[in-house]
């Protein structure tokens, strides 16, 4: 369950404040598939980042799974990100010099699990994301679609309840988009909360979308 009330994120440029998002209030139920829709600069990525805990709001309240994340100190916010959120970035943000396997295992390192447990979880995620065959390949050598599947496996490895995706299809061809949508559908069936920020119209045609949130100039339109 995600609760957002009067959320603002602004940047101070000299004496002026530039609002990325302004006075946003919304709620997302567990297991929902939600779409943040809007043009570039509408504030959807900022809103997504705040929900994922990689950015902090300037004011307002955000609670995720009953945790008031806007007030959490770094140590707790980091643990929250690690356990509750799986992030798929627009540019994948892989550790380019490491293998797919090591990239996927990265979120588990602070968890202090055994090597055996890590191995079990990584292999399971690689299988769901359909990238097991590239486990030992260096991330920088992968194609766009493979990089995205690696990013998906990484987002799944901690068994996070919320998966957030930022412009996930922006760098993919049609075939890879279909593969990606299939994976998202599977995850939705596993009762994961999925939030996608995109301006790609393909998502609006999906029949399993629960909520479409339209943003314009940082303000919630509908």
């Amino acid at each position: 369950m995600i609760e957002i009330k009067n959320l603002n994120r602004y940047y101070q440029v000299g004496k002026e404040r530039f609002y990325a998002i302004r006075d946003i209030s919304l709620s997302i139920k567990k297991g929902e598939f939600v779409l943040f829709h809007g043009v570039s600069g509408s504030g959807k990525t900022t809103l997504l980042s705040i929900i994922a805990g990689v950015d902090r709001p300037s004011s307002g309240m955000i609670s995720v799974n009953n945790e008031l994340i806007s007030k959490l100190p770094d140590q707790h916010l980091s643990r929250f990100r690690n356990r509750e959120i799986g992030i798929i970035f627009q540019h994948y943000n892989l550790l380019e010099s490491l293998t797919v396997y090591d990239n996927v295992s990265a979120p588990l390192i602070p968890e202090r699990l055994s090597l055996k447990e890590i191995d079990k979880r990584v292999k399971k995620s690689l299988k769901i994301a359909n990238i097991s065959h590239k486990a030992n390949s260096i991330a920088s050598t992968l194609s766009g679609g493979e990089k995205q599947r690696c990013a998906i496996a990484r987002a799944l490895v901690t068994d996070a309840s919320i998966i957030v995706c930022d412009e996930p299809t922006a760098n993919l061809d049609r075939a890879n988009i279909d593969i990606f949508l299939d994976i998202l559908k599977k995850l939705h069936k596993l009762n994961k909360t999925i939030i996608v920020s995109t301006h790609d119209p393909i998502f609006q045609k999906l029949d399993y979308i629960d909520q479409i949130i339209h943003l314009e100039d940082g303000v919630l339109v509908s």
Binding site: R79, F80, N82, L95, A106, P107
Partner: peptide, 16 residues
């Protein structure tokens, strides 16, 4: 810089 940001986004704390 980017790698540190990625690790932080994946749930690594400042201490980690």
């Amino acid at each position: 810089r980017r790698n540190i940001g990625v690790l932080r986004a994946l749930g690594w704390s400042i201490k980690d």
